[in-house]
Structure formats: structure tokens, C-alpha cells
């Protein structure tokens, strides 16, 4: 078992993008790797396309804390609207980010962030990464419903919190067996994703490709440099 620091991850997206599923896959993978982890979904009656959040805590030490991750060191933004259309409830969208933290944003191109936000991010020595997750998901897995997997690929490209083997096993478990408990709308989306593939194993293979492709498509963006313009 490898030793890692506390990693508190906040995933912000819109309902139906699979932020909850992504959190589940990531947390389970960490658990398989022998790490301590807990997964909290967003708590609520959110419907499709409403702002939604989920949280993963990973550490080599026992994690007790429950609830929202208020002070994340990684924030994953599943949809540019979270930032550009204010579809999140924290102001600014990276509120609570720890010093040296990471922002991973699903967008085809860098977003024009407000000067003030850039200044704050630079002060925090935050790293910003962009990954065109939806675009890659559509290209590689043939569906934008796999955006969440592409986001996990992006994260894996930045920091390897779990092994790739466990990620795969975790996905097998999530999509393969009948045992997983999903809410009504999540289950419906699951069926839609699975409907694209003849077999679950094909879907998993595609997802693994997707993880790799997303990792390769990362671009880093330095808030401090941009500030000079």
C-alpha cells in the first residue's frame, strides 16, 4: 500500500453528468488499493442539469470526517457552465481550495476567468488544468454520457491517486454486476450508457481508452502568467 496525504476532492457538475458515479468509481478504486476513502454524494433532490456536487476523501490514514468537502485540495469542474453560468453555489467557484490545490476543468479551451479570480488562484499557488472531457468522451466512447470517465482520466493524468487496475475493477463492479444501488435517474442513465455497447466488457475497454486519451489531452494553465496580460 502506498502512502499518500489527505486528498479531499470536490466534483462540481450538472445533474446527469455522472459526478456521483465518478466519485464512486474513484473512491472504490482507492479502497481496492488498500487506501482509506469515503464517498459522499451530493445530498439532494437535484434533477438533471441542476448544479450537483459529490465528494471523495482519500488518504492512507483513516478518514472519519463526513459531509461536504469544504476545504478541497482538488476541484473537478465537470461542466464549463459551473463557472461561466454560475451553476454552482460557492462564490467564487473554487471557494475553500487549499494552497497548492488543483483545479481540473472540462472545457475544450481555456475559459476567460475573472481577473480577480485569477489573482486569488495565483495567491493560492493553484494549478489549473483543462481537459476537453465531453469532446473526448464523444469521440472515443461515442457518448457524452462518458464525460465523467474522461474527467477521471484527466485526474489520473495529473495525480495517480489510485492504480489503473483498481479503476478498471471499480468500473467493472459499477457497471457489470446487478448489485450496485443507483437512484432512479442514475439507473436510467446507466441503461442509456450501457445501451451503446453490446457487452459491458466492451464498454469498460472503451472507458480505459478514454482514461488514457483524457490524460493525454490535458493542458496546464498558469494563472500567474495570464495575470500579466
Amino acid at each position: 500500500m502506498k502512502s499518500i496525504e489527505k486528498n479531499f476532492i470536490r466534483m462540481s457538475g450538472l445533474g446527469g453528468q455522472g459526478a456521483v458515479t465518478a466519485a464512486h468509481i474513484l473512491g472504490s478504486a482507492a479502497n481496492k488499493d488498500g487506501l482509506e476513502s469515503t464517498v459522499n454524494p451530493f445530498f439532494g433532490a437535484e434533477k438533471r442539469l441542476a448544479p450537483a456536487e459529490s465528494y471523495v476523501r482519500i488518504s492512507s490514514q483513516k478518514v472519519y470526517e463526513k459531509g461536504e468537502v469544504l476545504y478541497p485540495n482538488t476541484i473537478m469542474i465537470f461542466h464549463p457552465h459551473v463557472i461561466t453560468m454560475g451553476k454552482c453555489y460557492t462564490m467564487p467557484f473554487f471557494d475553500g481550495l487549499q494552497e497548492g490545490g488543483v483545479l481540473l476543468i472540462n472545457s475544450d479551451e481555456p475559459l476567460s476567468l475573472r481577473d480577480e479570480d485569477l489573482r486569488l488562484l495565483a495567491d493560492l499557488k493553484a494549478k489549473i488544468y483543462y481537459v476537453p472531457a465531453t469532446k473526448i468522451a464523444t469521440e472515443v466512447a461515442g457518448s457524452e454520457l462518458s464525460t465523467n470517465i474522461a474527467m477521471l482520466g484527466g485526474l489520473y493524468g495529473i495525480k495517480k491517486l489510485t492504480s489503473i487496475k483498481s479503476l478498471k475493477e471499480s468500473m467493472m463492479e459499477r457497471f457489470g454486476g446487478g448489485k450496485f444501488v443507483a437512484s432512479g435517474s442514475t439507473a436510467a442513465l446507466d441503461d442509456a450508457v450501457k445501451g451503446k455497447f453490446a457487452k459491458v466488457s466492451q464498454m469498460i475497454e472503451k472507458n480505459m481508452e478514454l482514461i488514457e486519451a483524457a490524460g493525454a489531452a490535458l493542458t496546464e494553465f498558469c494563472p500567474a502568467e495570464e495575470k500579466e496580460d
Binding site: 442539469l49 441542476a50 448544479p51 453560468m85 454560475g86 451553476k87 453555489y89 462564490m91
Partner: peptide
């Protein structure tokens, strides 16, 4: 307000 107020032009008692 769903999904969000426009904070530039209005204020909401909940946030």
C-alpha cells in the same frame, strides 16, 4: 431562484 440569480442585477435572501 432556479438555476441561479444573476448577482449583478438582483439579490436573494437565501444567499
Amino acid at each position: 431562484k432556479y438555476p441561479m440569480i444573476n448577482p449583478a442585477i438582483e439579490v436573494n435572501p437565501n444567499h
